[in-house]
Nucleic acid binder design. Structure first.
Lengths: 219, 219
DNA sequence: AAAAATATTTAAGCTCACTTAAAAATATTT
DNA sequence: AAATATTTTTAAGTGAGCTTAAATATTTTT
């Protein structure tokens, strides 16, 4: 399948997991940087290929076939991220950017080789789960957003859900990295801000960031 | 630049090095599996972009800019081959096939990282030279085709110039591998066949193979 | 509930990278 | 050197994946 189609089903999959589940053409168009008209066109076309269900003015819903395709692309993306992260000294943002291209030119055979080489990892360097070769995510995710944590508790960073360079730069500078531990020292619920302690530094984060940094309670 | 354009200049570059230097549209078309008409069209278009010189019914000649683009793609191809060969247990043919796709989705930054990781190798697993970041091939190639070797001498395999699966399978089965040594036991010049000794086996090769297996004299 | 704002769809049109078929030029054979 | 075969070019047309502009439907605001 073409790059455009792969990116389209991937965008629906990702938006379905995020946002307010808004998978109408306009939202997908924004995600992909194309016009609304192009998104509607593509949606109609993919409906005829049984990749999604299309009804005028409604949300786009992936079929099983469409979901499988999306997860296959996501798998390749995250495997590339894991490999590039292991081999090269590149920022999370750069790694994401490269994986965004490589994911579409990767055979299932190569994806399996990468996975095997890495010891069949379950998570990529952002903490996002890597679907298996059958397009299944077998891990259960009990992590919560930093915005929902309790004062005084210590947590382990489990996911950095973004692809924004500034966010990653900020994280890198402040030790906000997959697997590191943070103490939530204060929740300013009125202002939707969270104060954390990490590496003996105190940082005040606003909701833009605390809603995309996911953590697990320490066992 | 698009994948089609990258493949087009690459095909001209490769055909220019090979064959009887035939870089007319028809030959490029055959290489790429497209129609002659499509090749002529593309040639005209690329001439306006200063990637090649086009004159009706003449050979296509890359400009400096076109050569640079071709070498940049070749560099990425060969770096991928070297990396995949090092990391994964894949046949030379599989590696070639994957690299053929990945080469077009690789930033210069990533190419440099791969090169650095591998210790800036000068050759890929086929023995083909890897252009440097400036698109220069700095190694001098003194290797000769097996068909031009002398009876009784021992040589080191330096290049396997092909992308054919059957050829690679044959090579793999018989120890014909970059760096291995072979004794040329007999040249049947009339029949254009060459008898070699490798790993205590005697093999008779015809010109199809001896013209694409390159070797160096042992020092 | 009506008006205004926003989103979606339709329609027409564009570029890229191809195709096939026919015309024109070049290469090869006799 | 003429006849034949092969290549190259031109011409017309296609589908994918976009665009913008206008029409239509939905959502939000008042």
């Amino acid at each position: 399948m073409s790059i455009a189609v792969e990116n389209f089903v991937k965008a629906i999959y990702k938006n379905g997991k995020r946002d307010n589940n808004d998978t109408k053409p306009g939202n997908i168009a924004k995600e992909l940087g194309i016009s609304n008209a192009a998104a509607t066109d593509m949606a109609k076309k993919l409906a005829t290929k049984d990749l999604l269900h299309y009804q005028k003015y409604q949300e786009l819903k992936l079929t099983d076939k469409g979901t499988k395709m999306a997860l296959n692309v996501v798998r390749k993306h995250r495997l590339w991220e894991a490999l590039l992260f292991k081999l090269f000294d590149l920022s999370l943002h750069d790694i994401h950017r490269e994986a965004e291209l490589l994911e579409h030119q990767t055979s299932d055979l190569l994806a399996n080789k990468i996975s095997e080489y890495l010891g069949n990892p379950k998570f990529d360097p952002h903490g996002d789960p890597i679907p298996n070769a059958d397009g299944e995510i077998t891990t259960t995710d009990s992590s919560i957003a930093l915005s929902n944590t309790k004062e005084g508790k210590t947590y382990i960073i489990s996911r950095l859900m973004s692809d924004d360079k500034e966010f990653f730069d900020f994280c890198a500078q402040n030790g906000l990295k997959y697997g590191n531990s943070v103490l939530v020292s204060k929740q300013f619920s009125k202002n939707k801000m969270t104060q954390i302690s990490i590496h003996n530094n105190t940082i005040l984060l606003n909701e833009d960031f605390t809603s995309i940094i996911y953590v697990n309670e320490q066992d």
